[in-house]
Design a protein around this nucleic acid. Structure first.
Length: 871
RNA sequence: GGGCGCUUAGCUCAGUUGGUUCAGAGCACUUGGUUUACACCCAAGGGGUCGGGGGUUCGAAUCCCUCAGCGCCCACCA
């Protein structure tokens, strides 16, 4: 059957994924082999694949497939995350389009919609991961809201509460008015914006005088409960204790002193709004001020806002400035740059708010987690992120884990209906009744109510490496004991605090063991202008479309061609083209090998035999480097080594040498050995290009089994150094002859004789060189004196060339002589320098001496040649 | 404001302990080429004061200081 000139990945990929799946190739069970475990960073259940996923999961697949070939029990656990706030936002939007307001329906109704949504859109991403070729143990697929996973989450909450690590407190928290929930500090980003600093007059009571305060938030004046000045500020010292009248609402509030006020900022007077600023809250506590919250949960003003009630905070800001201006209470406005808190999920401006929430005490829990990273028990790749990690751990703050959402794990706390200050923590409502009873409160189910809030998504994610093996509920089951700690986790540095740090904390907390040995941080995928990929810019390609266009293998390696760990990746579709070209190159190598006309009788030629040995050495030495790269998690370097091994060494040199001339046959032994090497190459290639390698491996070996069954990662054997030098020498000669022909303007086809006095002719040198240069090489019977001679590179060639050596050639030689003389002087100078001879290491001095000898010899040869031709 | 990191060819990046093999790779580019695996190919070629300046050393892309530019993280003053 004639093979297509171009590799066609579509059918091949479908066929092999089905094969892997049908044969349960990626299933893993505890056995006596060494485990290699990766838990997937679970993508959002309703998400779709983007380039970041593609990169991240390709790397995981490479590591897993490599481990599998290394003979380990490779287990990659897939799954999805319920992504509480993100998914809830999507469902809310969907409902909005149907004209349904989330707050007009019950919790149960909402959850109904959410589950329907999840069932409809969920799991798409898992199928997309299969298209990439991900060799997960698909039977293990988990979802963070699965019953067992949820139970684990609740168990951990209860355990932490009982151990005193979870508490409930009224604190200043971040409030997302759009999602109407609190956020953890990690979910808030800051963005610099151009804003305005308003200077407002506050009349002093029983006086004609007034104070001027500076604020960016005039809409919060209804919550002002004091004006604070610095006690050292002589301007205002005598006013402390007096009262001022808040504009518009006419509240009477005191002027107090606080060290927290910066004299230099604004006017030196701070309006204190304890409900809406962290600093103000502290000042409020110190001075026992009233806390007036002026906002409703959705960010509109409540009844404290008087005639502004029900209007949005930003609308009110504009209107109130206008009103103040009309009342001549606006002194001036100044342009001002400052940072605004933005919700990571909804991108709306976060409001500081006083609220009662559940928190995890992090300080003590973090201690072992910090140590394990600092003492390299857990290794970060690249290392630089250790610093980031350390800083966060050193300054870790308590973790707000409650969210005012429906979609998630509901907080297992039960309150008395008529007195919410009395509560118990329990697995379910029946247990809650019992727990109340133990506290001496006898009530029935009807009198208690469960906390309405759910837990932060990350409160389930941080258990992931343990809970997927059921290690929370059954701490000593066979699976957790076998697979935990896991080997490597692959993720982006953006979730180092959200996820990585917390997994380490929970690992030590629950298992007294690290959760993983290595953390591989990928970079962010950007476009070729360094812009982040985004839907708005339209610069984010759909990985599935790319796969359809180029094939999964090509996109995989295309992404990896420029992705060192931790560096951002600048994606360009041309990388996929390069990947596709590489796929095709390999495909055509296969076509060549498959099309050989094999002769049963002929014995292997000298040069083929030599080439085979040379390539074997080349393969081994490259393999050594590749293994080193894998140890260091230098995945793209490993790929580049294979790329060059295949393209340059195997195709351009090895195959060119052994392939017979047209119509001629090739020895059976050559073909068999070639196929053996090709199989090994395919095996090494397999983690990177699983589909193509499987296809060609099965074709070349006439098997219908997988690489994983038939082959293993090739062993590194000792290299024959002499052989490499020997053959590399041939390649040097070839390249020099090509260079020479170029300078002499001799076409490839034009044959001429080269006489070489090197004894390597007997290893098939002549025919190899002929094949690669078109030059015929003969052992000369003439004495060298009779021939023209030229130095090309570091070799000396004797040519029986029609043309006499020209004046130009002589010029070149003279130039070379000058250069070498100059070089000789430098070395001589160096060697006569006492400082150098006394201080430089012996081997360096020896090298310099050797260099000098070489140059002297070179000069001698040039002089000789010049003499021959001037005579 | 605090911290971390980066600056090497047109682009993306290697460069481990300062020393032969250090100025490299891939891509892009230029030139030439279809000889039956592959034009998704082959061959050849151009290119860089290693961000600037100073220092240590016999010797610096590599170590130190300094300046400039860029990126990231953390905190966040109304």
């Amino acid at each position: 059957m004639a093979l297509n000139k171009i590799y066609n990945p579509g059918e091949v990929e479908k066929k092999w994924f089905k094969f892997w799946d049908d044969n349960d190739q990626f299933s893993s069970y505890p056995n006596d082999k060494k485990p290699y475990t990766i838990v997937i960073p679970p993508p959002n259940v309703t998400g779709i694949l983007h380039m970041g996923h593609m990169l991240n999961n390709t790397i995981q697949d490479i590591l897993i497939r490599k481990a599998r070939l290394d003979g380990m029990n490779a287990c990659w656990v897939p799954g999805t995350d319920h992504a509480s706030i993100a998914t809830e936002a999507k469902v809310v939007n969907m409902l909005k389009q149907k004209n349904i307001d989330k707050h007009s329906i019950s919790r149960t109704e909402f959850l109904d919609h959410a589950w329907k949504w999840t069932h409809k859109h969920g799991g798409i991403i898992l199928d997309q991961l299969k298209r990439i070729g991900c060799s997960c143990d698909w039977n293990r697929t988990k979802f963070t809201l699965d019953e067992d996973m949820s139970e684990s989450v609740i168990d951990v909450f209860i355990k932490l509460y009982n151990d005193g690590f979870i508490y409930r407190e009224k604190k200043m928290v971040n409030w997302d008015p759009e999602a109407r929930t609190t956020l953890s500090n990690e979910e808030v980003n800051y963005k610099e914006v151009d804003s305005t600093l308003y200077h407002l007059k506050y009349p002093i009571k029983d006086s004609d005088d007034f104070l001027v305060i500076a604020t960016t938030r005039p809409e919060t004046i209804f919550g002002d409960t004091a004006i604070a000045v610095n006690s050292k500020d002589i301007r205002y010292k005598k006013l402390i204790g007096k009262n001022v009248i808040v504009p518009i609402c006419n509240n009477i509030i005191p002027i107090i002193s606080s060290e927290l006020v910066d004299k230099e900022f604004g006017t030196g007077c701070l309006k204190v709004t304890p409900a809406h600023s962290e600093t103000d809250f502290i000042i409020g506590e110190q001075n026992d001020l009233e806390i007036i919250d002026v906002f409703k949960p959705d960010g509109t003003l409540n009844s404290y806002g008087l005639h502004y009630e029900g209007m949005d905070r930003f609308v009110v800001r504009k209107k109130i400035v206008k009103e103040l201006d009309e009342k001549k209470l606006l002194v001036e406005t100044k342009n001002y740059k400052h940072n605004v808190a933005i919700s990571e999920r909804t991108s709306c401006v976060v409001e500081p708010k006083i609220s009662t929430q559940w928190f995890v005490k992090m300080k003590d829990l973090s201690k072992p987690a910090l140590e394990s990273v600092l003492n390299n028990e857990i290794k970060f790749h690249p290392k630089k992120y250790v610093n980031t990690y350390k800083y966060w751990m050193d300054n870790v703050r308590d973790w707000n884990i409650s969210r005012q959402l429906y979609w998630g794990h509901r907080i297992p706390v039960y309150y008395l209906k008529n007195d919410s200050s009395k509560y118990v923590v329990a697995k379910n409502i029946e247990e809650a009744v019992l727990n109340f009873k133990n506290k001496g409160i006898n009530i029935t189910i009807d009198n208690i109510v469960q906390d309405n809030d759910v837990l932060d998504t990350w409160f389930s994610s941080w258990l992931w490496p343990i809970s997927v093996f059921d290690g929370v509920r059954n701490p000593n089951n066979e699976e957790i004991n076998y697979y935990y700690p896991t080997s490597t986790v692959v993720t982006g540095p953006d979730i180092i605090f959200f996820w990585i740090a917390r997994m380490v904390v929970s690992g030590y907390m629950l298992k007294d063991q690290k959760p993983f040995e290595n953390v591989y941080f990928t970079g962010i995928v950007r476009d070729n202008q360094r812009r982040k990929m985004s839907k708005q810019l339209g610069n984010s390609p759909d990985p599935i479309e790319l796969i359809n266009k180029y094939g999964a293998d090509s996109v995989r390696i295309g992404l990896l061609f420029s992705a060192p760990a931790g560096n951002d990746l600048l994606f360009d579709e041309n990388l996929c083209v390069q990947g596709r070209n590489f796929s095709n190159k390999i495909w055509n190598a296969y076509r060549l090998i498959e099309g050989f006309n094999i002769s049963e009788s002929s014995s292997i030629s000298d040069h083929s035999e030599k080439a085979l040995l040379w390539f074997e050495n080349r393969l081994r030495s490259t393999l050594k480097e590749i293994n080193f790269c894998f140890e260091k998690f230098r995945i793209s370097d490993a790929l580049m080594l294979i790329y060059k091994l295949v393209w340059d060494d195997f195709c351009s040199i090895f195959l060119e040498i052994i392939k017979p001339s047209s119509g001629e046959s090739i020895s059976k032994k050559s073909v068999e050995s070639t196929k053996k090497y090709f199989s090994e190459i395919l095996t090494i290639l397999h983690p990177f290009m699983p589909f193509l390698s499987e296809e060609l491996f099965s074709e070349i070996n006439k098997t219908n089994r997988s690489i994983n069954d038939e082959s293993s990662w090739p062993k590194f054997k000792k290299i024959d150094i002499n052989l490499i030098n020997d053959f590399d020498h041939v390649i040097d000669v070839v390249s020099n002859i090509r260079k020479f022909k170029k300078t002499k303007n001799i076409s490839f086809k034009e044959e001429f004789m080269i006489f070489h006095d090197n004894n390597i002719v007997d290893i098939g040198f002549a025919s190899v060189v002929h094949k690669l240069t078109g030059c015929k090489i003969v052992n000369t019977s003439k004495s060298h004196d009779e021939l023209t001679s030229v130095l090309v590179g570091k070799y000396r060639y004797y040519f029986d060339y029609k043309e006499e050596i020209s004046k130009e050639n002589i010029k070149e030689l003279e130039k070379s002589l000058e250069y070498n003389l100059g070089f000789k002087m430098i070395i001589e100078k160096k060697l006569s320098n006492d400082k150098f001879v006394n201080n430089a290491p012996e081997n360096v001095i020896q090298n310099e001496r050797k260099k000098l000898e070489d140059v002297v010899e070179k000069i001698r040869l040039i002089k000789e040649t010049l003499k021959n031709h001037t005579n």
